[in-house]
Design a protein around this nucleic acid. Structure first.
Lengths: 153, 153
DNA sequence: CGATATCCTAGGAAACCGGTAGGGATTTGT
DNA sequence: ACAAATCCCTACCGGTTTCCTAGGATATCG
């Protein structure tokens, strides 16, 4: 019962993109995969694939060729962690899919246990949907400033 | 991101045991693995292993030999689903374990993303800890009575 | 043209999962 | 004493998933 490394990487990549977009004014320059991977310590070719998924999902756009890279398309304030999880590792599902031809399994469909799984599933999704990329960026900046201060003391 | 079949089986087995214990008065007779597996449609040898885990965890006790079987030891009202999940598939952990020798990973330890994972983890555990075996038994009885009525109409 | 990028597809090692299997140990009933 | 029933321990196995690497095609800029 855990989230995949792939999701962690996807969030880190988007976090990195979001922070850079915040710094630059106007149309931000595309950030190449290489830089994102290095900054967030993600295996380069693996990061490439994850970025491709994020592009297909419409979260980022890409530009090929020299001086190319990826750009954040979605507004960080409306891009939720839940959406990223769905793209990176598939939707959160706590119960096995029910075989529609297995009567025994269908009989279990309305069991107390199944109800609990569904409840937990909704709880997780709601929690993940309540956090946006903008929230993460803001919180990360706070953390960074705090540790900076700590070192200053 | 889902719970294992093993956990589902563990809960079903305990549910079955709990219901039988509720019917009989006084010291209940031990229920053999075979009956539990048949009633809950769990592969017999697989169920055997799961029951062994539940015994090692102290949730049930077992009696060997003819007329043997397993008995519920813990009070269903205090046995939480969270405990069963921990035994059947290990604790719910939403973040990868941090390698204490990997400085780069440790630097991520206080990241916004890690904080989110921890938050979700606690949310799930709390939810699972708030449901007891007695709750499941009660709810399942309600469901069974309801479907009985449906067929009567 | 050549360097820098993304894009697409294909693997591959390792872990995990669901389940099976063999055989030993213990208890009960006859 | 013996057979049947039952739990107990360990190993294994086929399939899937996960994390990651690799090769090469394609596009863009200077």
């Amino acid at each position: 019962m855990k989230f995949s490394q792939r999701t962690e990487y996807a969030l880190r990549a988007l976090l990195e993109l979001g922070r850079r977009a915040g710094e630059a004014d106007g149309e931000p320059a595309p950030v190449p995969n290489r830089e994102i991977a290095a900054a967030q310590r993600i295996p380069e070719r693996f990061c490439e694939q994850i970025l491709a998924d994020l592009r297909r999902a419409g979260f980022i756009s890409s530009q090929r060729g020299a001086c190319g890279g990826v750009r954040l398309v979605r507004d960080p304030a409306t891009l939720t962690v839940s959406e990223v999880v769905d793209v990176a590792e598939g939707p959160v599902v706590t119960q096995a899919c029910l075989d529609p031809f297995d009567d025994a399994a269908r009989a279990q469909a309305h069991s107390a246990i199944q109800e609990l799984w569904l409840d937990v599933q909704i709880t997780i999704r709601d929690r993940l949907a309540s956090v946006t990329l903008a929230d993460l960026i803001k919180r990360q900046d706070e953390l960074d400033r705090t540790s900076y201060l700590v070192f200053q003391i």
